[in-house]
Design a protein around this nucleic acid. Structure first.
Lengths: 242, 242
DNA sequence: TTGCTCCTCACGTCACGTGAGGTGGC
DNA sequence: TTGCTCCTCACGTCACGTGAGGTGGC
């Protein structure tokens, strides 16, 4: 497959000064923060970063002269906000509440990463079928082909709902659950690969090492999806004579 | 090379009414249009579709009682608008001007698809490297591994930029261009599969048949990506003990 | 000193969302 | 008739963008 162990040894966190040239203590100016975030969120702007502060989503420190000074925790917070907007279409009000709840549960000094994504939705199999507008047999069918797994307790979450909904639409096109096993295999392979790739990171003894490794896997997965998506768009243009 | 007739017949063709239940002449209600577009653009809403009409970006027909009736051409137009918003961050005013210019050049009766997605961004290899902040050799490396192709004329578009940017970030993690060939193969396979799946649709002689086939391919690709994404999220939760 | 980045604050704008009150169609 | 989808129109909201006028720091 694509990535073997050769890749692992080369894993290196970017040197502290290699990205935005931030100064002592790892504090960054608003411009440096912008540079970092734009890699993953290209439509970020200065005015947006200021706006997010005005809305109470981050509280960077200030220099005596009033310049904002962002810590890496602030950047992690911003990344959480931007991800929630991009991937979950949440309004800022909701994101702010989630951040506040996480701060409550985990004092600011210890908060090194985004809050654990709470699974909010808990559906029984019957509810799952109803929400996705499919027959219960369809859900069982998906489950038998390894595309769904219930949590301990027998309930299903939002991702399960997404799987059933999408599978139902694919079935409209004649693509049935049994045709979808390859998707499960591909997803597992990808997760396994990236998890192994960051394994050295996770083994470090620093406090946040594990959380950082988890973040890194998510970032790799996200990059992987964007790559696939761009290649498919390019392929479609060729095939459809864009 | 749009939808050639080779090796098409073996795949079952979805019955005309299996997709959104649209009625005669392939005209659709606003709700049916919403269902179709949501596959690729999940944040589409009824109010947004009405808004886009109010802003003059589409002009669906009306039934005698005032209900909107969308053609496949209208859907293609909407797709062009939504794509421009998502991928190029264009304001509606600009998109409207582009559509108007395309209508000018190609009378409405002949317009079977979105205007030739003018690639707005035209980068030379050097510019591409600069915008992605990588060395020119990196770009050539990607090209040699089949991840990039220049348009006739030797220039690159936004998707090329996306590929280079993402590949550069992956390289930070030790995943190099030569490891990425599998992505290209997977993307090609997916496009080929879905294109064949709708080939019978494309061969029909009805007016919007080709546009509709293209629409369907995009929808399949989008569903496929959402399925993959949901399965990966579920897999991550297992692997990381979410 | 110069060029650059950063600051606040007021106002504008863009892209919708909501909800009331009502009609059409299987 | 009933339940569902669809309609318009007025108003509200959310997420920023812009620009004036000014300060800080290598």
């Amino acid at each position: 497959m694509a990535f073997r162990a050769e890749g692992i040894a080369r894993i290196a966190q970017p040197a502290p000064d290699s990205l935005g040239g931030e100064s002592a203590k790892g504090m960054m100016s608003i411009g440096e923060v912008l540079t970092h975030l734009r890699a993953e969120f290209p439509d970020t702007t200065l005015s947006k970063l200021r706006f997010l502060e005005a809305e109470g989503l981050v509280e960077p420190e200030r220099t005596p002269s009033g310049y904002r000074k962002y810590s890496w925790d602030d950047v992690a917070r911003l990344r959480f906000v931007l991800t929630a907007q991009r991937d979950r279409y949440l309004p800022l009000r909701v994101i702010r509440e989630q951040l506040a709840a996480a701060d409550q549960a985990r004092p600011a000094l210890l908060a090194v990463g985004p809050p654990p994504a709470e699974p909010a939705v808990r559906l029984t199999r019957a509810e799952l079928a109803e929400r996705a507008e499919v027959a219960p047999e369809f859900v069982r069918d998906l489950e038998q082909h390894g595309l769904l797994t219930a949590w301990a307790g027998g309930w299903y979450d939002v991702d399960a709902l997404a799987v059933v909904t999408v599978a139902a639409r694919l079935a409209d096109f004649g693509v049935e659950p049994r045709h979808l096993r390859a998707y499960r295999a591909a997803a597992d392979r990808e997760v396994g690969l990236f998890t192994q790739l960051v394994a050295p990171l996770a083994r470090q003894s620093e406090p946040g090492a594990l959380a950082r490794a988890a973040e890194t896997v998510r970032e790799l997965v996200s990059l992987s999806e964007r790559l696939h998506s761009a290649l498919v768009r390019a392929g479609l243009r060729d095939a459809l004579g864009g």
